[in-house]
Design a protein around this nucleic acid. Structure first.
Lengths: 203, 203
DNA sequence: ATATTTGTTAACCAAATAGTTAAACCAAAG
DNA sequence: CTTTGGTTTAACTATTTGGTTAACAAATAT
């Protein structure tokens, strides 16, 4: 049995906090605003989560736990490299369209406090690159793809998939597309990006 | 003649503010901390820049004015597409190694307040994609590269170059490389990225 | 029924923080 | 030397904000 019998309020708080923190970041978020969004008294936030810092950490962990399995699809899936790239780009872009604040939130808060990643590693299932590394090396040695390190390829895959969501205001400004066109553009990337990557590593 | 005769202090403030704002963002920065870093009294900040908001905007504009010409090298240079990609990736990565906080700062603050881009457009030379669009279309029509829209190619180029700097804590965690190895990795990308892109758009 | 634990609220508190004020300072012009 | 103008400082203010407290309500156990 946990400390609190009823988790309805607790859940309500976490959802409200997630929205506010993701939109405004740790520093920009206000406890009062979170309480308002959760339709409860501010004291309740402290009753359930003790401090802003702990509430934030709960939100961050939950968000990270949502993202990590997505990346796991590249790093630890058993499919072929080409299938992985195709599936990942398709799935990831669909996933982020549903959670548009997520990547920016995680990236931003990790930059604010890079030490934080250590705390997360202890609490959340954390994929690593080892298996993917073997897979890439094998493909390179077999001569199926150009010589490339698993790290660089991994960065490229993440970059092409995540960046358009993180930098959307910047890109919109330079390309002069409106919100609707940008949406179509992202939709098109489900295929564009995997073609681009596969072509790039083909001999 | 401007309002202030001596701009030494003004410049000192701007430099200190740039460091603090880039490291902590608008919400995380403290006026007192900026004053301390500039080795002056807090009242001076207000004497020269009136408010935190205006000081922030001065810093943002200055930062953006540093970044914009870099992007201009893709959008409005006269060189061939292949040269552009080679030069840009090489130059941009060198540039950012010198200003590591810059891309994250700009992206973060634009996300916090997307309206802000309008204010910038009025004050800073703002490249647009039109010329680049013609160039890409020409190359596609001539059959020199695979069919791709200028917007998607532009996004891909930016993504591959900028993302590794914006998401470094995340990438470091997943790839399990330390700070030194990550530096080498970025250095290697000066060539890796342009090869990757050129290979990707080759028929 | 009654005692006890858990959940909720309004009012309060102390610290932090952006911004102000008024006086002092100081160099250059008269 | 004195006046004048911008510059600089210390002290102050008003407000915001994270967090606390004590009373109260509702549920649960005895």
């Amino acid at each position: 049995m946990t400390k609190h019998k009823d988790n309805k309020t607790e859940e309500q708080i976490l959802e409200a906090a997630q929205k506010i923190f993701q939109a405004k970041g740790m520093d920009g978020a206000r406890m009062q605003e979170i309480a308002d969004k959760a339709s409860i008294n501010k004291a309740m936030l402290h009753y359930y989560y003790r401090s802003k810092q702990l509430l934030f950490e709960a939100v961050f962990k939950k968000s990270f736990a949502l993202l990590a399995p997505q990346l796991n699809a590249i790093l630890n899936d058993d499919s072929s490299l080409e299938d992985k790239i195709k599936n990942f780009t398709h799935n990831y872009i669909s996933f982020i369209i549903k959670h548009p604040y997520l990547p920016n939130f995680i990236i931003q808060e990790l930059n604010r406090n890079p030490e934080f990643i250590k705390k997360i590693k202890k609490n959340v299932a954390f994929p690593n690159i080892n298996k993917f590394k073997l897979q890439v090396q094998k493909e390179v040695n077999a001569g199926n793809i150009i010589p490339i390190s698993a790290e660089q390829l991994f960065i490229n895959i993440l970059a092409l998939n995540i960046f358009p969501f993180v930098a959307s205001p910047l890109i919109k400004a330079f390309t002069e597309v409106d919100d609707n066109d940008y949406k179509s553009l992202l939709e098109a990337r489900k295929k564009e990006v995997s073609d681009f990557i596969i072509n790039a590593i083909k001999k």
